[in-house]
Structure formats: structure tokens, C-alpha cells
């Protein structure tokens, strides 16, 4: 059930090395399970606590990616889990179709870290939160700025550099892989 907005978004995101999956709210856990490495921890922003539990239920080492979240489940230090983590999973505020970007909020604390630190980043985007362009998206972020504690990151693809002879290399300090899961509503 793709729309011109999701199609344009996907095309842009893919052109800079992001991968796109489509799913529904019901299929989310399964889709996610297919994307993450089995033998490394998966860290979630707190609003995705349920999703973390669903992954744990099928055998993944999955945590809410905060000091408390990790402490609730294991003796291991938060730092250690973070360093071992294969994937960081984060929700999002909205997507921008024309630039292929996603705005991510503070994610209950460590959101900003979870999209940048683990080698693999997954961001979940609700299809109906897609906006046409920056001009439509920015005022919305601005309106919600207080509730976001003034923290937002526009992510457009995995981290990259061209500092050696202008050759594009994906995955410098941030993730090498970025998966965007677009969650679509039921067919109308």
C-alpha cells in the first residue's frame, strides 16, 4: 500500500545506502527479528519496551537501552552491553519524503546514542508520519520541541565519509547499516 510519499522517501533513502522494509503494526516484531544479528545484544529506546520483550521472547538478547533497562535484566554493565550491541532500534517523529530523512527524538534518554553507536541501526517509521519536505517537517518538530527536550536528529542514511580521495565510504563512526522499517496501516 505504498503512496507517492513513501515511494519517494524509499527511493531517496536507498540512494544513500539505507535499506527499507515494509510491515504492519502486527508484523513489526517479525520483520525486525529478520533484520538483527542473533548473537549480539539489541538495544531499544524505552518507548519500544514491548517490542524488546517480543524479541526476547523469541530468543534475542534484547534490552531497553538505558542503564536501568540493562540493570533490570542482567548483571552486566551498561557500558559493556552497549559496546557489544549489534543493533540499536529507535522510534521516530516523522519522515521527510523529498530528502529521504527521518527525524528522531531523544528516545527516552539514549535515543541519540542508539542511532549512532551500534554498527547497525534500525529506525521505525510510521507511514502516516511522512511529510513532503523540510518546509513541512521543521515546523512540526518546532511545535513539539519542548516535549522533545530540544533534542532531534534528522537522519538521512547510514554514517558516511568521502574524506579519502572523495570516495564514498559508508559507516565511519556511526552505523554501517541503516534499516528503516515503514509501518503501514491496514488497507483502507
Amino acid at each position: 500500500m505504498s503512496t507517492p510519499l513513501t515511494e519517494a522517501f524509499a527511493e531517496r533513502m536507498q540512494s544513500v545506502g539505507g535499506r527499507i522494509s515494509y510491515t504492519t503494526a502486527e508484523g513489526l516484531a517479525e520483520t525486525l527479528g529478520g533484520l538483527v544479528e542473533r548473537d549480539r545484544p539489541v538495544l531499544f529506546t524505552p518507548e519500544l519496551r514491548d517490542l524488546a520483550r517480543q524479541l526476547r521472547d523469541v530468543g534475542h538478547e534484547a534490552y531497553v537501552g538505558t542503564r536501568e533497562g540493562v540493570a533490570e535484566q542482567t548483571e552486566a554493565a551498561f557500558e559493556g552491553v552497549l559496546e557489544r550491541a549489534g543493533t540499536g532500534v529507535s522510534g521516530s517523529l516523522l519522515g521527510i519524503s523529498s530528502t529521504g530523512s527521518i527525524a528522531v527524538g531523544p528516545g527516552g534518554g539514549n535515543g541519540g546514542l542508539l542511532i549512532a553507536f551500534p554498527p547497525h541501526s534500525v529506525i521505525i517509521l510510521q507511514a502516516d508520519s511522512l511529510r513532503k519536505n523540510l518546509a513541512e517537517a521543521l515546523p512540526e518538530v518546532e511545535r513539539r520541541f519542548d516535549e522533545l527536550d530540544g533534542e532531534a536528529v534528522f537522519v538521512s542514511g547510514p554514517s558516511r565519509t568521502a574524506d579519502i580521495e572523495m570516495m564514498s565510504v559508508v559507516g565511519v563512526h556511526g552505523p554501517t547499516g541503516l534499516d528503516v522499517i515503514i509501518v503501514e496501516g491496514k488497507e483502507a
Partner: peptide, 24 residues
Amino acid sequence: GTGQLLTAYVSLITGEPSTDVLDM
């Protein structure tokens, strides 16, 4: 600058981050 529509990250940061302080 780089001929990108938007760079990989555009961060809006207000004050100290809410991230957990590492012990490292």
C-alpha cells in the same frame, strides 16, 4: 558543500544530552 540533499545527521541539541553517563 557536499552536494547532498541533507547530510547523514543534522543534530538539534539543547543543553546537555539526556544520555546515560558512561563509566569509562
